[in-house]
Amino acid sequence: MHILITGAANGIGAAVTAMAAGKGYRIIATDLDMDALQRRWQALPNIRCQALDVRDAQGWTDLVAGLEHVGIEIDVLINAAGVLRSGQTGELKQADIDLTMDVNVKGVIFGVNAVAAGMKRRRRGHIINIGSIASLYATPGTTTYAASKFAVRGFSIAAAGDLRPFGVAVTLFGPGPVKTAMLEQQRGDADAALTFSGARALSADEVAAAILGPVLRKRPLEYFLPAREGLLGKLCNAFPGFFLSQVDKARARGLRNFTADAYRPRDEDCQ
C-alpha cells in the first residue's frame, strides 16, 4: 500500500510518517521544506521524499503524474499540512488570511482533486483530511483558522458523496489540540487561549495511532479525537448561541492552562 502524506517534515505529518513506515507501508512523504524532509526520512528505504507546495495545483498534478509514470498508485492520501495564525476580527492581516486559506483549504482541495481521478479509475482508495476539533467549534481569536477547518469539513463530506459510488472513502479527522510546534506557537497568545481550554493536549503519536488504526481500518466519514469533544462540538455546532455564552469561561480556563503539565510537550513533540 502506498500512502502519500503532506506536511511530513514535522508535527502530525511526521508522526504519521514514522508510524506508517514502522508498520511497513510505502510512503510518499511530501513537504515544502525538502531539506528538512530529507534530513528526517532519506535513510529509510520505504519512504520516498518529494517536494510539494500544497498551494500549487499544478504541483499536485505533476506529482501524481510523476508517481504514476514510475508505476506508483496512491492508495491513501493523508492531508496533514496546515498552518494557524491567530487574530481578532477587525485586526486580521490579509497575508495571514491568504496563507491560512491557501494551505488549509485550497491545499486540501487541490490534493484531493489530483488523486481522486486515479482512485475513481481504479475504484478504490481512501482520502483522510486532517481537520480539527475547530471544524466544529468556531473559536473566536483563531477566527480564520476555524473558518478554514469548517471548510475542510464541508468539503470532505461533499467529496465523500462524490466519490463513494466509485469505492473511494473520504474521512474528516478532527483532533483536539496536539503537542506540536503549532501548539507551542499559540502558548501565551491570549487570542489562542481557547485552544488550551480542554483537559489536555493529545500527543502526535496518539493522533497517528488513531489515523493508522480505526480510521484506516473502518474508513469512517468523520472521526474526532477525543470522541467526547467531538460530541460536545456537534452540540455547540447545533446551538451556536449556547457555545458563545460559554466562551469567556473557556478562555479563562485556557489562560490558566498555558503553563499546565497536560499541555507541555516533550522536546521531540516540536521537531
Results as ranks from 00 to 15, higher is better:
139 T>R: 10
139 T>C: 14
139 T>S: 15
140 P>I: 13
141 G>T: 13
141 G>L: 09
141 G>Y: 07
142 T>Q: 05
142 T>P: 00
143 T>V: 13
143 T>W: 07
144 T>F: 02
145 Y>K: 00
146 A>D: 12
146 A>H: 06
147 A>W: 07
147 A>T: 07
147 A>H: 05
147 A>C: 14
147 A>P: 13
149 K>P: 02
150 F>T: 00
150 F>C: 03
150 F>G: 05
150 F>W: 04
151 A>P: 14
151 A>M: 08
153 R>H: 06
153 R>D: 01
153 R>M: 09
154 G>W: 05
154 G>R: 13
154 G>V: 03
155 F>Q: 13
157 I>P: 01
157 I>M: 12
157 I>S: 06
157 I>C: 04
158 A>G: 15
158 A>F: 02
159 A>N: 07
159 A>E: 12
159 A>C: 14
159 A>F: 09
160 A>T: 02
160 A>Y: 03
161 G>C: 07
162 D>M: 12
162 D>E: 15
163 L>K: 13
164 R>C: 08
164 R>T: 11
164 R>A: 15
164 R>S: 15
165 P>C: 09
165 P>E: 02
166 F>H: 14
167 G>K: 09
167 G>Q: 10
167 G>E: 11
167 G>R: 07
168 V>R: 08
168 V>G: 00
168 V>M: 03
170 V>N: 00
171 T>F: 04
173 F>G: 00
173 F>N: 02
174 G>L: 02
174 G>T: 02
175 P>E: 01
178 V>E: 04
178 V>P: 07
179 K>T: 04
179 K>W: 14
179 K>D: 04
180 T>S: 12
180 T>Q: 11
182 M>K: 05
183 L>K: 03
183 L>E: 05
184 E>N: 05
184 E>M: 13
185 Q>E: 02
185 Q>Y: 08
185 Q>V: 05
187 R>S: 09
187 R>D: 12
187 R>I: 07
188 G>K: 15
188 G>V: 08
189 D>S: 08
189 D>M: 06
190 A>W: 01
190 A>M: 04
191 D>H: 15
191 D>L: 11
191 D>C: 15
191 D>W: 12
192 A>L: 11
192 A>N: 06
193 A>P: 06
193 A>Y: 13
194 L>I: 08
195 T>C: 09
196 F>S: 12
196 F>M: 12
196 F>D: 06
198 G>R: 01
198 G>K: 00
199 A>G: 02
199 A>F: 00
200 R>E: 10
201 A>E: 08
203 S>L: 03
204 A>I: 08
204 A>E: 08
206 E>C: 03
206 E>I: 11
207 V>T: 10
207 V>A: 11
207 V>F: 10
208 A>W: 08
208 A>V: 11
208 A>M: 14
208 A>Y: 06
209 A>N: 03
210 A>K: 15
210 A>S: 11
211 I>Q: 03
212 L>V: 06
212 L>C: 08
212 L>Q: 10
212 L>K: 10
214 P>M: 11
214 P>V: 09
215 V>I: 13
215 V>R: 11
216 L>A: 06
218 K>C: 01
219 R>Q: 15
219 R>C: 08
219 R>L: 05
219 R>W: 10
220 P>D: 06
221 L>A: 10
221 L>T: 06
222 E>V: 03
